[in-house]
């Protein structure tokens, strides 16, 4: 990597000032150091933000719970109250990478992580995402890539937390230009849908401060399918959340990861599920709606039946945990 300077910030505002120009926030560092070591990005100054006060807490409110952006993935995984209140969040956290990585990985870093596309990550390929001329994956090795995209790049979002947060309708609170901005998960990734150069909608200097999760959906579940049994990326991930009132779904939301640059959500499916009694047929119809417009490529078409199975299983899991 290139040489850089290092600073520790003690307030969010000073962190933002330090990072302006060619700086980067450093929390867990899992993604950042990999990018720096491969010369995929460079930064003149790394601003340690682990020191920022108040961002490493999980706070319980009646209508919302707040998770600070410096809370580690392991903290979420190990939190008994989260497991009870948002079981899907617990499940998503437990699937992230390995124990060692979960111990240092933060919520903010998990949400802001960059593409894992192997063309993007390769030091000697200059793809669209690196301001090159073409997406190598589109006609190349695309087994891990998207079924949906709004642009030519087919690199998918891989944050497990984004998937479950989307289903819980969580909001990210982002410090932007000195002001707190609220972004849904759809908004947090929208720019990646449109622009191959973007991994998310954050601009340089934007800092995720916390995530607010409404408590209304008392049921939630997360499943992912991978090549291996542990410490492997999801081929597809799926999260669902809802309330169940009189045996019927209320405000259901389904979101999928690793098949689109954004957490994949289909409003028509959520509306279809609303008020329904969950059974195999309902879940199957919802899965059909969610995957209706999938555009499989040469090597990733298997993700269609895989996603279909995960949607059905995740939805039925909501029911099972009565």
């Amino acid at each position: 990597m290139k040489a850089f300077q290092y600073a520790t910030a003690h307030s969010a505002d000073s962190a933002r000032e330090l990072v302006a120009g060619k700086g980067a926030y450093l929390a867990g560092g899992n993604d950042l150091l990999g990018l720096l070591k491969e010369y995929l990005i460079s930064a003149d100054l790394l601003v340690n933000i682990k020191s920022l006060p108040g961002l490493n807490k999980i706070e319980h409110g009646r209508k919302f719970w707040t998770i600070g952006s410096l809370v580690t993935v392991a903290q979420i995984e190990d939190d008994a109250d989260i497991k009870k209140t948002f079981p899907g969040l617990h499940e998503a956290a437990a699937e992230v990478a390995s124990q060692q990585i979960r111990n240092v990985a933060t919520v903010g870093g998990n949400l802001a992580q960059h593409s894992r596309c192997w063309y993007f990550r390769h030091r000697d390929t200059v793809c669209l995402k690196k301001d090159g001329d073409l997406c190598y994956a589109r006609n190349g090795e695309n087994r891990y890539h998207s079924l949906f995209t709004g642009n030519t790049c087919i690199s998918p979002v891989v944050s497990s937390l984004a998937t479950i947060f989307a289903s819980l309708e969580a909001t990210a609170i982002v410090l932007r230009d000195g002001k707190e901005t609220r972004m849904s998960m759809a908004e947090l990734y929208q720019r990646a849908w449109e622009n191959p150069l973007a991994h998310n909608s954050l601009s340089n200097g934007d800092l995720i401060l916390r995530v607010e999760i409404p408590t209304a959906r008392t049921r939630s579940a997360y499943l992912q399918a991978s090549d291996k049994h542990a410490f492997d990326w999801a081929l597809v991930s799926c999260a669902a959340a809802a309330e169940i009132v009189d045996g019927k779904l209320k405000s259901p939301r389904v979101a999928l990861g690793s098949i689109s640059p954004v957490p994949h959500q289909v409003e028509a499916a959520n509306q279809f599920l609303d008020g329904k009694v969950l059974d195999e047929a309902t879940a199957t119809q919802a899965a059909d709606l969610i995957l209706k417009d999938a555009k499989p490529l040469e090597h990733n078409a298997y993700k269609v039946p895989l996603a279909h199975a995960l949607i059905r299983r995740t939805l039925l899991k909501l029911k099972g945990e009565a």
Binding site: W118, Y119, H122, D124, T125, Y136, N139, G140, E141
Partner: peptide
């Protein structure tokens, strides 16, 4: 896994 177009090991 190798890439036909760039010739690199992916």
């Amino acid at each position: 896994v190798m890439d036909d177009l760039s010739g690199v090991v992916l």
